[in-house]
């Protein structure tokens, strides 16, 4: 049933990008997204494309997986493309029909917009493909920790995320098991009308709730038994370590951003 659903989309591999500190990856991804929306020259697009290409190549993830992220968004992409094509009125008219006019400027704008969005999806996809959900959480906690001074519950938030992530596969497995057990007793989840299907879910949901509460209870007990009392003074088993690849990535990103800013003022092409 759920056997083919892998949660998150981490792609295990041993590349420099996989080995990077999650904080650096988060900050770089954030910076890239901002820069991406400031591009206003062809040189800028080419450089950004090159940057994405270098990152993807360094991460050693199959490009197929990156394209997979685009699939569910094709309708939105198409919609944005059409809007850009038809609602740009400036430039030379290439084609006109009734009240619709397609101009060269509109077409270029639409294509560039598409490229921008695709690069955005690629880059954020790269982040989740090369970083496990848990280390992303650790990274977010660490980046948010300065906010603890203003009583922002960074640790609690991260702990909740970690536990939720930890239990998603467990609950999926449990759902699978219970569905199988009920199917073995003659239940069917995929036949009948909508009402019958909804009704057949009730036994499943009851059982799942009971077990989720039981697990939560056991986990709370186990954590208390091991002296958990919040984030105060808690150390990490695998502390985040900044290494050479992180500095290299940071330097590359700074150079990239500098180039992008330069292209915005000095028009090369």
């Amino acid at each position: 049933m759920f056997k083919d659903v892998t949660f998150g989309q981490y792609y295990p591999s041993d590349s420099v990008v996989h080995r990077m500190d999650p904080r650096f990856k988060l900050v770089i991804a954030f910076a890239f997204i901002i820069v991406l929306f400031m591009i206003n020259s062809f040189a800028g697009y080419i450089t950004a494309g090159l940057f994405v290409f270098v990152c993807v190549a360094a991460a050693k993830v199959p490009v197929k997986l990156l394209f997979k992220n685009i699939k569910p968004l094709w309708f939105i992409l198409l919609f944005m493309f059409v809007i850009n094509v038809f609602f740009t009125r400036s430039g030379n008219v290439l084609f006109s029909f009734w009240i619709l006019k397609i101009t060269d400027e509109g077409l270029i704008k639409a294509v560039l917009m598409l490229i921008r969005i695709v690069m955005l999806i690629f880059f954020t996809g790269l982040l989740t493909l090369t970083t496990t959900p848990i280390s992303l959480t650790v990274g977010i906690e660490s980046l948010l920790s300065p906010l603890k001074k203003i009583k922002f519950p960074a640790h609690e938030l991260a702990m909740m995320m970690t536990i939720a992530l930890r239990f998603i596969p467990t609950l999926m497995e449990e759902t699978d098991k219970i569905m199988k057990a009920q199917m073995a007793r003659g239940a069917s989840f995929d036949t009948g009308n909508l009402y019958q299907k909804a009704k057949s879910m009730i036994p499943l949901l009851i059982t799942l709730f009971v077990s989720a509460f039981r697990r939560a209870d056991e986990l709370a007990l186990a954590m208390t038994a091991r002296c958990y009392n919040g984030g105060e003074g808690r150390t990490r088993m695998n502390p985040l370590k900044v290494s050479g690849v992180d500095y290299a990535g940071a330097v590359m990103t700074v150079l990239f951003i500098a180039a992008m800013i330069m292209f915005n003022y000095v028009h090369v092409i």
Partner: peptide
């Protein structure tokens, strides 16, 4: 199944 008691619901 293993641990069938977790499947009781009625």
């Amino acid at each position: 199944f293993q641990y069938p008691e977790y499947q009781l619901f009625e």
